[in-house]
Simulated scan of single mutants.
Amino acid sequence: MLTGKQKRYLRSMAHHLDPVFQVGKNGTNEHLMRHINDAIEKRELMKVQILNNCLDDKHEIAEELAAETGSELVQLIGSTIILYKESRDHKQIELPRG
Rank of each mutant, 00 (worst) to 15 (best):
D89Y: 12
C54P: 02
L51K: 14
S87Q: 08
L95G: 10
G70K: 02
I93N: 09
D57E: 14
L73I: 07
Y84R: 01
E94Q: 15
Q92Y: 07
A67Y: 13
Y84T: 06
L55H: 13
K91Y: 04
I81C: 02
E72T: 06
H90Y: 15
A62S: 01
R97E: 15
A67W: 10
L65E: 00
S71H: 03
I82C: 07
E94R: 15
T80H: 05
L73C: 05
K85P: 04
P96A: 11
I82M: 07
I81H: 03
I50Q: 00
C54L: 06
G70N: 05
C54V: 03
S79F: 09
L73F: 06
Y84E: 01
R88P: 05
E86M: 09
N53T: 13
H90W: 14
N53I: 08
G98S: 13
G70Y: 00
L55I: 11
I81R: 02
K85Q: 12
G78D: 12
D57H: 11
L83Y: 09
L95H: 09
L83W: 10
I50D: 00
D57Y: 09
C54S: 04
E72K: 06
D89H: 13
H90F: 15
L65H: 03
L55W: 07
L55M: 11
Q92T: 14
E68I: 00
Y84D: 01
S71F: 02
D56A: 13
S79P: 05
A67K: 15
C54Y: 03
E94D: 13
D56M: 13
I50W: 03
R88D: 06
H59A: 09
I82F: 02
I93Q: 10
